[in-house]
Write a protein that binds this DNA or RNA. Structure first.
Length: 582
DNA sequence: GCCGTTTTCGGCCCGACTGTTTTCAGTCG
């Protein structure tokens, strides 16, 4: 079985867990965790590159020893250190570290004292009241463990971005009504627009007399108060999501927002920069000795360590600090940069609104063009368009005039198992936009799945590949493909990749988005709207695109229509929609 | 285990809250 970066990352993560249980040097443990994260985020396929005998690039945080271990893992499929650690400690025990409030010390105490190795054993020990007798544990800890294990066994832990955003916006609005409160902002991974978030982090500035904290724990959706302090509290809402509120004085706003936005790895890197300049950075400000030197705004925090402002979506310690220092930070695309949308559905298939209604909604959001791309006949369940219905739809699009927005004729055509398309070439040639999509045979072997998609990209009428990974977040794994090959074929053929903005998809991933940027492939940030409201999902696609380092010039549908047309396969620059309709 | 405009050795981000303690260790973000 071929090894992937994720497999190497997993080995290092396992080593870190086991070292932690072994009371090892915390900085050695951090080195493994760091390496795991770096390799997991890496775009280059390390294993493939090593098998080809290439010299892997020097990665920050990966020195001589870890490089050798990577080589060992790739060439032998094993890591001697991990094997040795596993002999010493039962491997399953590391899952106990994932239980909130259980760290290495307490996990070890549970193992030594009660021979607890698995979640199930932990659950039984808590239920039988055996944990409270251990030194350092009490009744309260036992009850917390019981509840945490139950919660863990019953449901997943991360929430989709769009879901978390709804809860977060509601809490933030509620907190803005508190007395003596200044700013209330959502921070954390939500502000960084990660595709899923583990909890909601909210930052508020307030006077000492403010009731914002008591108001927070009294929020009507609060099911449980997990901790409560003057400056920090955590609650769990009825929906199961955890919300943390941090309150700081106004002069600390920038430092606190930076600190509370993360990521953790980014924060550590920035604090080291501060340290190197003889400064101390915490959530209250930037200090030289006892004296605060900045911290009122995030810009001032970055300036104190000699950097320009780094947008939240880039703060993952994936090279943004080096880029900032070199003045190479991208000017990230913004929602307002979008001029059009190249993927949406109407009542002709599984959409809920007419073509005219969709056009009006898109125009209301400031878009200047919209491609109607209903499904093709293969998807019978949604009454996918066969050639004659598509021809009728083409006529209707041609007849539909909405002032201020240009409608483009399109299709989301199925890529069949052999890589051919679900509609005849002659008909596809009449369309402005052909979005090719995989909706079936998700389980083909990697090589065949890749070939299937490459063949579709070779088709002279295909504009772009829809939702390239085919995953549904938390519901369906991506299909196995060689994404680099696909990206390179798209580059060679002048095709594009979609970044599908639907919150269930957010497909491309941020790392593939970067990979495509490196290969010079534009993405189309598309709503895939099935109703008029769903154009609002574009904001999530923009977030993902920004995480992927996309600038306005890297986004197909940020181009004015005239320039877009110039890039379409098989279209001459001056060929307009009138020609296509005839 | 990594790393170097203090350093090839000796550092490695920093503070809040909880529970079990009698002054703090463990955990978290």
């Amino acid at each position: 079985m071929p090894l992937h970066n994720a497999d190497i990352a997993r080995v290092f993560e396992d080593i870190a867990d086991l070292l932690e249980l072994d009371d090892e040097n915390p900085f050695r443990i951090r080195a493994y965790r760091n390496a795991s994260r770096i390799i997991g985020d890496l775009q280059l396929d390390l294993a493939a590159s090593i098998r080809r005998g290439e010299e892997p690039p020097k990665l920050p945080g990966i020195g001589e020893d870890l490089s050798e271990k990577i080589h060992e893992i790739v060439t032998t499929g094993h890591c001697a250190l991990l094997d040795r650690l596993r002999k010493k400690t039962p491997a399953a025990i590391t899952e106990l570290l994932r239980i909130p409030n259980l760290g290495p010390k307490r996990v070890k105490a549970l193992y030594r004292g009660l021979e607890v190795r698995t979640l199930e054993e932990l659950y039984r020990a808590a239920r039988d009241g055996r944990i409270r007798g251990l030194p350092g544990f009490g009744e309260k800890s036992e009850l917390n463990i019981l509840q945490s294990v139950e919660a863990r066994l019953s449901k997943g832990r991360r929430f989709k971005l769009a879901v978390a955003a709804q809860y977060a916006d509601a809490v933030a609005d509620y907190l803005r009504k508190a007395s003596g409160v200044g700013q209330v902002v959502v921070a954390g991974s939500l502000r960084r627009m990660r595709e899923t978030v583990g909890d909601i982090d909210i930052l508020a500035t307030a006077e000492a007399s403010s009731d914002v904290m008591s108001r927070f724990v009294g929020y009507e959706e609060v099911q449980e108060v997990l901790s409560r302090g003057d400056t920090r509290s955590s609650v769990r809402l009825a929906s199961g999501i955890q919300v943390d509120l941090r309150v700081v004085p106004r002069e600390s706003y920038g430092a606190a927002l930076h600190y509370f936005t993360g990521s953790k790895a980014h924060n550590i890197a920035i604090r080291r920069l501060a340290q190197a300049r003889g400064l101390k950075l915490n959530e209250y400000g930037v200090f030289r000795g006892q004296k605060r030197v900045s911290g009122e705004t995030e810009e001032s925090v970055f300036a104190a360590v000699g950097l320009p402002y780094v947008p939240p979506e880039l703060r993952e310690d994936r090279g943004e600090i080096e880029a900032a220092r070199a003045g190479r930070l991208p000017r990230l695309v913004e929602l307002g940069d979008l001029k059009g949308d190249l993927h949406c559905h109407s009542r002709w298939t599984d959409g809920h609104h007419s073509i005219r209604e969709m056009a009006l909604a898109a125009k209301a959001r400031g878009l200047e063009y919209l491609a109607i791309t209903d499904h093709s006949r293969r998807i019978a369940a949604v009454h996918g368009l066969d050639p004659s219905r598509l021809r009728e739809q083409i006529d209707e699009i041609g007849r539909t005039e909405v002032a201020g927005i240009t409608l483009l004729k399109g299709i989301e055509v199925d890529i069949l198992e052999d890589g051919t398309l679900d509609l005849p070439d002659l008909l596809l040639a009449e369309l402005d936009i052909v979005v090719a999509a995989v909706h079936s045979n998700f389980n083909l072997p990697r090589a065949r799945q890749t070939e299937r998609i490459l063949r579709a990209l070779d088709h002279p009428r295909v504009t772009m590949l829809a939702h390239p990974l085919g995953r549904l977040i938390d519901a369906r794994e991506p299909y196995e493909v060689d994404m680099l090959k696909i990206i390179r074929r798209a580059a060679a053929r002048g095709r594009f990749l979609e970044l599908n903005a639907h919150p269930e998809r957010l497909d491309l991933s941020d790392t593939h988005c970067r990979m495509a940027k490196d290969e010079g492939v534009l993405v189309a940030i598309s709503s895939d709207a099935h109703s008029t409201q769903q154009f609002d999902n574009l904001r999530y696609g923009i977030g993902q695109g920004r995480r992927g380092g996309r600038e306005k010039k890297d986004v197909l549908n940020a181009l004015p229509l005239r320039e877009l047309r110039r890039l379409l396969p098989g279209k001459r620059p001056d060929r307009g929609r009138e020609t296509a309709a005839s």
